[in-house]
Amino acid sequence: MPKNSARAGKGTQSSDGSPKPAAHSAVLVIGLGNPFRGDDSVGRIVAARVRRRNRPHLRVAESSGEGADLLELWADSGAVIVVDAVESGGKTGMVHRFEASQRALPVRFSNSSTHAFGLGEAVEMARALNQLPQRLIVFGIEGRRFDVGSKLSAEVKKAVPHVVECVVEEARRLLAPQVPGSPGSSTSACGA
């Protein structure tokens, strides 16, 4: 599994490309965003750092955030963590945690994507088609700079190590069946 994850990594936009087994017991971490649009790249940066931890129970993928791509990526996974930049008017660098398998993402969060069919739509489409992973956690990092060619803002950059820890901790809890993850959404300490 970790070898596949490494292959998925190498700057790819998408899945690990190997034939998918029927289902994965590992947690799938998906970093979303456009690497060339400032804070929008933070999801992918977090995913890359999680990949470097090389944990056998973690598969890591990166995606531009195009909805149909996401539906395909998480099709065979029971537990998924998505990391994406958001723009909700909150303080830059603030980390939001949503249990998307329980409820819809707030609409305003999908605005930082220029995709006609993005993360928010993919979650609801999967729900309508009964294809939603059993557990789908979304970490949203509040960004402020999304223009092409811009760099990560200092506040978002500072939030990265914290989000990496949140993801690893979340995965650990998702893998421990007897310890239920905290449902609902939270904006403090990743809801941990």
Binding site: F117, E121, E124, M125, A128, L129, N130
Partner: peptide, 11 residues
């Protein structure tokens, strides 16, 4: 309104 609404009736 959108494809999600459509998916609920025409999956």
């Amino acid at each position: 309104d959108d494809a999600i609404q459509m998916a609920q009736e025409h999956p």
